[in-house]
Design a binder for these strands. Structure first.
Lengths: 152, 152
DNA sequence: CCACCTTTCCCCACTTGTCGCCACTATATT
DNA sequence: AATATAGTGGCGACAAGTGGGGAAAGGTGG
């Protein structure tokens, strides 16, 4: 089973290519023949990067939502509409479509977060700006019900 | 199975032609011999573009609706009435009928969104104007029941 | 019925973006 | 300290995107 962990500081090249860290490459090659899919995150200014097979699961779930629900339609439009297939080249790099780079304000310095079945890709600036807030709200005492059962 | 994804920035030429991005062309050629159908979207100021065979499914469903239902008749009139067949030329371009271009306020800069069995075609202006609102409402915390089951 | 005008379509040229290759640098390992 | 390996960046070839000219087809008006 495929599971991505860890934080990586990565430089995009001037053409917007992202070099996937070596330690992830083999499992990506095995899982989906070097095919990745990037889309936007709806809650944070970052991109989500899935292996193609993981993405197809998401996609099936998305498309099975009731078509009459306006919010479901919105999700479909945004997530599917931004989902871009990318293929790792022989050096383990993928070209990020410029419209997606724009969305996440990605230029050179980026942060790649392993998040289980996907990666999150942040611009360094956005990450640095939001990390303190994330830590603060995580540290606050308001534990949601779903978290209450968690033993760390 | 045919499945369109992703966002594309595209320039229409002065004659109103749309060049389909290369990566979609082969599946369109395979699925429906370069035949596409465009119609209007009923909820947003954009056009919907189907392969001919996918459109024929929609069409059958539309026509099987009860004829006495005024809303069904409305849908039939609008969707079927605006549906225009288009053929990709040797360079992968289709001519968008001027009445459809007018409906979606399309001039030069356009955004083509892959949406599963169809594409959505937006004018750049309309897309830029609506995208922030769409992101806002997608990010809002009011998650409808149907979305609650979705794991991204 | 003919002439003219507009629309559509094809072809070619040019520009831009994409991709592969290679070299250099930094980091880790023995 | 030397060597190997991953990361980074630049160059160049090629493909895709874009735009314009002109021929053909279709429609309109005299």
């Amino acid at each position: 089973m495929l599971f991505f962990r860890g934080i990586n500081s990565i430089n995009l090249d001037v053409k917007g290519r992202l070099a996937i860290p070596k330690r992830y490459r083999e499992s990506i090659a095995d899982a989906s023949d070097n095919q990745l899919v990037a889309t936007i995150d709806l809650h944070s200014p970052c991109l989500l990067i899935y292996t193609l097979d993981e993405w197809e699961v998401i996609e099936r779930n998305l498309m099975s939502l009731p078509n009459v629900d306006p919010q479901a339609r919105l999700y479909q439009r945004l997530l599917l509409g931004h989902a871009s297939e990318m293929e790792m080249d022989s050096q383990g790099r993928v070209l990020l479509p410029s419209l997606l780079r724009d969305h996440a304000k990605l230029d050179k310095n980026a942060i790649l977060l392993g998040q289980g079945n996907k990666f999150e890709l942040w611009s360094q600036e956005a990450w640095d700006a939001q990390r303190p807030d994330m830590l603060d709200s995580a540290a606050s005492n308001q534990i949601s019900e779903s978290l209450a059962s968690l033993t760390l």
